[in-house]
Design a binder for these strands. Sequence first.
DNA 1: AAGCCGGGGAA
DNA 2: TTCCCAGGCTT
Length: 349
Amino acid sequence: MNTQATLTAHFGYKLVDWYQSNSRDLPWRRTRDPYPIWLSEVILQQTRVVQGRPYYERFMQAFPDIHALAAASEKEVLALWQGLGYYSRARNMHATARTIVLEYGGKFPASYRELIGLRGVGDYTASAIASFAFDEQTPVVDGNVFRVLSRYYGIFEDIANPASRNLFKKAAAMAMPPGQAATFNQAIMEFGALQCTPVSPLCPSCPVNSTCYAFRHEAQSMLPVKNKKTQVKERHIHYVVLCRNGSIAMKERTGKDIWEGLFDFLEVEAGAAPDWPAVLPEDLARFSPTPVSGPAKHLLTHRRLLISFSMLELPETVSLPAELQWYTPGEIKELPKPLPINRFLKDFL
DNA sequence: AAGCCGGGGAA
DNA sequence: TTCCCAGGCTT
């Protein structure tokens, strides 16, 4: 065994050792059942454990197995997902539950190759399920793994470049102790989350600092290299809350846009003229809605939304624009809605 | 390869 | 403010 191979194997065993005494006790780590493992992995995509965990508990409570999830409506699933963001995860997860029930007889596919064919299951999630539930020797590469490996080995490849993923997968595979895929994969991610953190990593207490490139070269803050910056665009949205006899007009967002599948109000998006008065649809142009609140800032990763609300009591004689529908307060409670809509309903109605 | 898709917490 | 989180899909 050459020096490099010895070094990497040493690294993998050290991480596993570290994990045995430093890991958090998380519910999805107490099982080999692919259903809760898959559920937790989808919830935790781009999401911190502290943020995702309550959702995991609620989903397991509401849908204890794949059949329960498949039997639910997409609307129910989205409603439970409210506030977690990246709603396509919920829609894909629901579709995959139905696929597994209908095409796999309710039994989860048990290999990376099959898993990655499922909707909402990409390279990371397929490897995670395959290793955690089925002991397949396939390395996971997530944000934590990019960080740990780039620092330890001094890999300066841009992690935003999809091509560099293979390099990291090979490095992870070399470090993986034979027969310990599940533990090693958990270990390297947990190590990234708790020890080798993005800012101010805990190098003094790190078990592998003596052989870590970044520590030896004081390059922790330079790694991983990530060049692509997502630029944030501003977007002005004005909602006109149409009311009649205690009901409110809402619509489902259908286009390929933010909050697809969620419900909101009559929407007047202002391009060049960000502020009220917004231009109402032709049928409603003679009315003057009452401004209620906003514009309030709502930040997404890639958008800076400025949202304002006004209200209009719509006379019986005026018909509703086609895409809208009347909902009672009780019905509205059950609809999946974006966070700003929920905040408005809570504060002003 | 690049753009799109949420929301929150830490510094 | 900026960064990034147990990423994946579409174009």
